[in-house]
Simulated assay, not measured.
Amino acid sequence: MTDQQAFASLRGLAVGDAFGAQILLPGDHPDVVGRQLPAPPWRWTDDTEMACSIFAVLRREGHLDQGALAASFATHHDPDRGYGSGVARLVQDIRAGQPWPELAATAFGGNGSWGNGAAMRVAPLGAWYGADLPRVLREAEQSAVVTHAHFEGVAGAIAVAAAAALRAVQPTLGGPDLLSSVIPFVPPGRVRDGLTTALDLRHADPADAASALGTGREIAAHDTVPLALWIAARHSAAYVEAMWLVARLAEDVDTVAAIAGGVLAAGAHEIPPEWLQATEPLPDWL
């Protein structure tokens, strides 16, 4: 277990999330093209709040305890953090005493959520276990189904956790090697298909890649994870370059940045001091 790398991943996730949350006009807006940093403080969103629960449960329990994770989500839910309506309702119902397995399984007409919420928060778990990939995959799935029981929602979490674990073990892993190393661990489906396309587009123009992979507009795992990992692979040694590319390409900017930031920070990375200082501190309860 690598507590230090898991915390580094969490911090990289939080900075990406908080930076992305300030980018109100992504794409070719002059502030993005000219790399004008948003004015501090940068406030993080539900991505970071839920990732903090994963890290806290791992540190306290020594493993991903689903009941403890569900309780932490409910206890620390801040409605001002930008939660999606489905997850917000679910955690409120958990707080009211309803069982999380039933709530997660019956969401969206009994199909479960395929949103990107399980993927956005899971990178520290991958960094925590590092080389123990069977455990990474198993506990990534367990962390996902607490809120996102759909197959694709789980697959998105598995992909991100595997990428962070691989970076924790091989800190400079990037480029097509990162993508090709992750793909075999992801179950067949739309997330894996997106990652395979990302590998095929490894040398593509960024705008063309985003058009093919998705930008997070659907807030779905398969519309978010492939682009986030494509960016992490393309700028595996340049955290800031990755974040600005997210700002240019993504529509769910904070979540794509949180995923890419968490994966990059699990390995070799450098976050500028001014970015760290601009980002809101992690919560006291962590």
Rank of each mutant, 00 (worst) to 15 (best):
A198F: 12
H269L: 05
A207W: 02
E251Q: 13
A242W: 09
A207E: 08
S236Q: 10
L245R: 09
P206E: 03
R234G: 08
R202I: 13
H222L: 01
E241P: 01
V256D: 11
P206V: 07
A220T: 10
H235P: 10
L195P: 04
A258N: 03
V225L: 11
R217V: 14
V246Q: 02
A250V: 06
E251L: 06
A260E: 05
D193C: 10
L195G: 08
L227I: 05
D252L: 01
A242L: 08
V253S: 13
A238S: 15
A268H: 14
V225S: 11
G261Q: 12
A220L: 12
R190K: 05
L199P: 14
R248I: 00
A233E: 14
A242R: 08
A232L: 00
P206S: 13
A257H: 13
H235F: 10
T255A: 08
F185Y: 15
V263E: 02
Y239A: 07
A266P: 01
P188W: 05
D208L: 15
A268G: 13
A220R: 12
D252Q: 03
R234P: 04
A260Y: 11
V240T: 15
G189E: 12
A266N: 10
L201N: 12
G216V: 04
A221P: 08
P226W: 03
L229T: 07
P187E: 14
A266V: 01
R217S: 15
L245S: 11
A258V: 00
R202V: 09
V225E: 09
